[in-house]
Design a protein around this nucleic acid. Sequence first.
RNA 1: CGGGAUGUAGCGCAGCUUGGUAGCGCACUUCGUUCGGGACGAAGGGGCCGCAGGUUCGAAUCCUGUCAUCCCGACCA
Length: 600
Amino acid sequence: MRVSRLMLVTLRDVPADAEIASHQLLLRGGYIRRVGSGIYAYLPLMWKVLRKISAIVQEEMDATGALETLLPQLQPSELWERSGRWQGYTAGEGIMFHLEDRQGREVGLGPTHEEVVTSLAGELLRSYRQLPVTLYQIQNKFRDEIRPRFGLMRGREFIMKDAYSFHADEDDLRRCYGEMDRAYRRIFERCGLQAVAVEADSGAIGGAASQEFMVTAEAGEDLILTSEDGSYAANLEKAVSIANPATPLPEGEVKVIDTPGQDSIDALCNSQDLEPSQVVKVLALLARMESGAQQPVLVCLRGDQELNDVKLVNAISALQNDGVLDVTPVSVEQVANQGLSPWPFGALGPDLDDASLEGAKSWTTSFLRFADPTAKELDRFVCGANSPNQHRWGSRWSDLSCDPQVVDLRNAQAGERCQKDPTQTLMARRGIEVGHIFQLGRKYSQAMEASFTTAEGGQEAFWMGCYGIGVSRLAQAAVEQHHDQAGICWPLAIAPFAVVIVVANMQDETQLQLGEQLYDTLRAEGVDVLLDDRSERAGVKFKDADLIGIPWRLVVGRDAANGQVELVERATREAQVLPTDEALASLREAISTTTSPTVV
RNA sequence: CGGGAUGUAGCGCAGCUUGGUAGCGCACUUCGUUCGGGACGAAGGGGCCGCAGGUUCGAAUCCUGUCAUCCCGACCA
């Protein structure tokens, strides 16, 4: 390709609405244009990158025996009603774009494809003999994100590879999950990305095991904790650790202490000369359930610990066997609106009586009670006395008439010891989630009544897995991980072009001819080569070449007269002036070492 | 949805306080000189000042409303 024909428009100034380096560079380099909030056009350069990534993904997915397919983006509501997700995905905070057609039928733009694919599998896969099957597609997904961000990182329309596997039993699902894990590692490695696999929460998609693949980068939206040797890695949502030990409370009798205005752990500890770890704090929360129930929840945490919302939501839905829409702190106003007498906020104790809920207008009238192990393990502690401005000192759990469920509900923190290997300390890093694999189990196949005939002649629901890669996000994550002051440094395997030939002075016949000749030679060899044939000054071309990040550059300049050119590696800036043949040989050597797929 | 900010040419910005009918840099067009790290000179083209009301002889500027975008929190590939 010739730059003069490439519709290349690069920007010198940084667009004001781009915050992070990768977003700025993609805009400045003429890779993407914003069309609307969270909606981007992939310009020709970007599309080449995306196709290269897709090709790697396809090769690796095909190698696992997965079948490529293309499922509709426009999906009828009935499918989603069968899985029970239509309401959750469209109403209120719903993430699915949806509309009504002229016949009054409701349809949604696919944010994901479990429903479509499960329903198809139910129709097509009738016998255990046909299993296992994995289907995958590279498709645009639509999600009505509340806050699109950072260019392609969180768009409302984005490209995703999603795969769904169907199995006769759980063991086979596990086998496939392991295979996908390995395929994913190869994909990210081939794309030149440093990625970490972390234990993750399954979130709204549900299911048993799940693992995320994070590209480590400062701009990442996720916090991950890893052990020093990397043997343990988890998303903060899921991470566990050994909490630092609590400071024991001095000997003494149980007593009630006056704590006027000491409503927070900080205030209490400062006034009473306590350590936060000597206190049990009690959080009153309200869970809105999918069934419509409004369930009050009391959570006991050691005073120095933070609540992990995701863990709490999971604990509630497991205990109630009902989905949780959200969990929010109970406010003074809400208590009043329920027609209840005021609660002693700031002095709540773990044994706050269910009588506090008697006569509530719309709330369930008994608390769901949880305690984090760090709180439950305290022998003696300080806690609220359930009367305003009073706390109890030296309480024991056995003295309190309550029996909370003990569940891990705290955030693990950097600096704490690793549960898997207590000799190691956890470190915090930031990551961009580029892939996520799940063992879904039979959640969707049961809901959608997708079943097959077993060897014994019975009907059973499929065991399913699903496996996603954010293709467009991955491309930007690669920029986030591979750039410098001057611009992008694409990993060779996903670079839009392997090499750019810069003719320094287009007026110089010798240079021009040598440039053209090199271009023809490389093109004939199937090399992805770009020729900068614009009649710009050399400086401009160098700046643009750096910005758009082509891994190799051949400069045809003043040494052209002696048959010499300069070969420059973008990432390292290493340059050598060589006779043309040698430069070509070095270049071939350099670009043959990659396993880059062929994309024309 | 809550908190913060911004809307003026393709991009980056000034002008607004103190109303008088829009300007700078980059980009774009033409000519000349230049030609290995975003050249210089000259001459050009391009703006519903987000939108709608209002105040005023007169509004980019003041007032009201509205829309959009971005940043911080809840969602996720």
